[in-house]
Amino acid sequence: MTHSLNEIEAIAKRAARGSGLSWGLAEEAAKGTRWLSAFDLPGAELLAQLLVQNDRIPQIDVSPVSLSAEVWHAPMRRMSPLIAGASLSDCAQSLLSRGQIIMEDVSFPLLAVPFMGGASLRLGVPVAASWDDAHFVTDGKLLCVNAAQTALAVDRANTITFSTPAEMSGPREPVLRASVSSGAWSQLAAFAHRTYAPATEESRRLGAGAGLGDND
């Protein structure tokens, strides 16, 4: 069974919110997961693992300490790829002037990759990322991947280097359809479920407000 990208974005947003992220960061997580899924990369699977790891912890603990530091790191030495990634996208201009931004001890680094797509769209030049044996370049629309399967799905990178400008070679087109493992889907659904208010007879009546017969 395949999923539409809209379904993936919708469940990722609710799941990220359910794990304790702000709505704005949940939107980033959702767009990023959708973007990875469109390129047939395991975005939903890694998001599910990240949300388990950071479930309801204070987000400040896994956020970059400073955006002007030479190397970005988090207070607890384990940085969220979503928060660091969102900051990377926000700092697109300084990425261009600095030439590179280095991050240390990033969880599930693949989840940070979509944000360089956002940065690239803003700057109008391709952006590259690498860790271990994984190398990516994107212009925001197409993605060049040069990575061993094992390096793609690592749960932690000691160092990620983002740099611009970069050269696009052998780009992939997005596929616009995705398959998500049922384990990951259930995990995301469990997080998403936390955002739903339990139904009561009163909410059925008041909340939707129909209250008229429909056999007319």
Partner: peptide
């Protein structure tokens, strides 16, 4: 505004009268 567990659809509730 909240989403109900039942059909995952948006609803509008009373903030001070319902646990939403």
């Amino acid at each position: 505004w909240y989403v109900s567990e039942e059909k995952l659809e948006p609803r509008l509730g009373e903030r001070f009268e319902e646990p939403i």
